[in-house]
Design a protein around this nucleic acid. Structure first.
Length: 487
DNA sequence: AAAAAAC
């Protein structure tokens, strides 16, 4: 069995790895570290929880330990889609570079330029950044990317979702073509494939199966909930959430509660606090210091309930969450997978409970279709009569009547021919487009490079070459983004 | 009906 000591890492890096308590590399680390150390480009297809971050930080530190940084010319660059993710990568560098003299700067939005400028002026070995703030620094003329020896793109598929691809392409074009590129994505959407074909040269390709498919270590349940009156939906749903939490009792050590909208994140967090629950909100409109504080508190166990938008759905490394509650059914089925993937990690068991209103049913159906499995319905924990769930007649607990019979055989993800025209219709266009060879025609008009107009970048080519994830190939991975979104 | 990322 391969050990870290077999991987040719510098002794100082190896020492830090051992001090952190690691001996054996994960598959992505074992696959990516050797080619990265040899100076090759790397294309890593892996998602979070696979040890992906260390698979690029360890070889980077080893390589950067030789040589010194020059003022305003960083030697390496790591791009991340969100601020929290960037901060997480920075921490990873701290952990493994403690015996090496390396300077780094974290360039993210929401904090002042001043400190970041000072660091850049002094010269840094490693720049860890979100695309917006990096380009902002560049445009102010504070930063030169011509000295970049190693560039890392982390969570590329999420960058695509967030409309960052034009930024990424621009940043690539600002770095020397002699750079080494390490590129990571959980999936290989057509647009990602195009980028890698353009900017990587003869990459070593490492694919890693996802840890466990959603169904294996996570117990899932859906609470079908019908409000008694439309204007009471919010408050009744919040009460339902408290009931669900209470019903889990002590087994619920901590939990993330996901809402679809930022306002609801605030409302739910406030409401939980009012009722004596230890809860705090996190979403993109809160200021960065608060986001950081909240996340730190949740990580160290001083905060029990994190109420979150989808900022927290992907990528963040939050160990040991016992429960995930979906206050809303996510409107994109793949987000469900990411959300519930926050629990049941590293072999631990986890539970995910989704509150589903009649309005959410069609999204919930899409989730079940994606999972290719029915999620069991549970009744109101305050009125525990499981049989009642099958009775279609109106009862005192209207929520229960809404529970449909479990889906025995979910419809296959690939629909029949007559449904296909829907799929070539972009989400933005009103009238159904005829099926054609090029489903989502590319936007011809010239765009500002920073325009994050989502959707226009997506190509929904059905014939595109899709790469699997090892043994567990969830059906949705094989579909293009347009196909996945055609609900 | 949304979220994220720049000021």
């Amino acid at each position: 069995m391969t050990k870290f000591s077999d991987l040719n890492l510098s002794p100082k890096v190896l020492k830090a790895v051992e001090e952190a308590g690691y001996e054996t590399p994960t598959p992505i680390q074992e696959g990516a570290i050797p080619p990265a150390l040899e100076g090759k480009d790397v294309l890593g297809i892996a998602q979070t929880g696979t040890g992906k971050t260390a698979s690029f930080t360890l070889p980077m530190i080893t390589k950067l330990a030789r040589g010194r940084a020059r003022a305003r010319m960083p030697r390496s660059l790591v791009l991340c889609p969100t601020r929290e993710l960037a901060a997480q990568v920075a921490e990873n560098f701290d952990t493994y570079s403690k015996h090496v003299k390396l300077t780094k700067a974290l360039l993210i939005g929401g904090v002042s330029f001043k400190e970041q400028d000072t660091l850049i002026d002094k010269g840094v070995d490693v720049l860890i950044a979100t695309p917006g703030r990096l380009l902002d620094h560049f445009e102010r003329g504070k930063l030169l990317l011509t000295g970049i020896e190693i560039m890392v793109v982390d969570e590329a598929d999420r960058m695509l979702d967030m409309g960052f691809i034009p930024d990424i392409e621009r940043i690539f074009s600002l770095t020397p073509f002699t750079r080494q590129t390490l590129f990571f994505s959980a999936t290989m959407a057509p647009e990602i494939e195009r980028i890698t074909n353009t900017f990587l040269s003869a990459p070593a390709r490492i694919e890693v199966a996802r840890q466990a498919s959603a169904s294996e270590t996570i117990e899932q349940a859906a609470m079908v909930f019908r409000p008694s009156r439309k204007d009471r939906e919010g408050s009744e749903k919040r009460r339902m959430l408290r009931d669900l939490i209470d019903a889990e009792g002590a087994t619920c050590t901590n939990a993330i509660i996901f809402c679809n909208r930022k306002v609801d994140v605030d409302v739910v967090a406030k409401s939980l606090k009012k009722y004596g629950y230890d809860a705090a909100p996190i979403h993109g409109d809160l200021d960065q210091s608060q986001r950081t504080r909240t996340l730190d508190g949740f990580r160290d166990g001083s905060l029990r309930f994190l109420v979150a938008s989808d900022v927290a759905a992907r990528g963040l490394d939050i160990p040991s969450v016992s429960h995930v509650f979906n206050f809303d059914v996510p409107s994109h089925a793949e987000d469900y997978i990411h959300r519930i993937g926050r629990t049941g990690r590293a072999g631990r068991s986890g539970k995910a409970i989704t509150i589903c209103t009649p309005r959410d049913e069609k999204y919930f159906d899409a989730v079940e279709r994606l999972l290719q499995k029915a999620i069991p319905r549970i009744g109101n924990p305050k009125a525990p009569e499981p049989e009642a769930a099958q009775v279609p007649a109106p009862t005192a607990a209207p929520a229960l009547t809404a529970a449909p019979a479990p889906v025995a055989a979910p419809a296959p993800v690939r629909e029949s021919a007559e449904e296909q025209p829907r799929r070539s219709t972009s989400r933005r266009s009103e009238k159904p487009a005829p099926r054609s060879e090029k489903p989502a025609q590319r936007n011809n008009e010239s765009r500002a490079p920073r325009d994050s107009n989502r959707g226009s970048d997506r190509r929904g080519g059905r014939d595109s070459n899709v790469v699997g994830l090892g043994d567990h190939l969830p059906e949705f991975i094989a579909l293009s983004f347009d196909e996945r979104r055609a609900s």
